[in-house]
Amino acid sequence: MLKANGLWFRYGRRLPWVIENQTLAIAPGERVALVAPSGRGKTTLSKLLAGYLQPQQGQIRLDDRPLPSQGYCPIQLIFQHPELAINPRWRIDQSLNEAPRPSPEILAALGIQPGWLQRYPHELSGGELQRLAIARVLTPATRYLIADEMTAMLDANTQALIWQVVLEFAQEHGVGLVVISHSEALLGRICERAIALGG
């Protein structure tokens, strides 16, 4: 169970609160949509949950323990822009090895071709890079996956292909999903329930 209790967060001491007294709980294997008008802290909350930011007040607990401060984080966040998520000076293969290497079945299911591995990120398209960024976190150590507009930049076919793999993986390993998307159709397809921010 992933639980956030009374989270408060702001980016600076004189700036307004972005997250105010937010509490939520997500069970393993659950698929939850995070809903709020734009600019109301959806991305901030996902960064808090994945440990990219530290809340000023409140705690995030995974199975009643605080998040580990080092080592592989069991809660992983996928961003909208894959070209920022991969070191531009590394070959793809090196980036894939940054985390425990994903299984060949995952790579094949995502349509990742062996020929891509020796290339540099600027030689691949956004859709191809996003498949790699996702493959990297589809490992058994991942317990929760937060998708922040994960497929907003991708065409419908690549979007469906990526979600098919992610949903299958989540079901098989009991991974909880938190999904942010502007597309209501997509949220309706994927999620079982929605959490409205601030509510």
Partner: peptide, 27 residues
């Protein structure tokens, strides 16, 4: 078939993709 696949892959339609990826411009 590709445009049909794109239409079918929309979440409000069938949400079913065709597997694979675009061929590399090198080969």
């Amino acid at each position: 078939p590709y445009s049909q696949a794109l239409w079918r892959a929309l979440p409000q339609n069938e949400f079913i993709p065709v597997p694979g990826s675009q061929p590399s411009p090198e080969a």
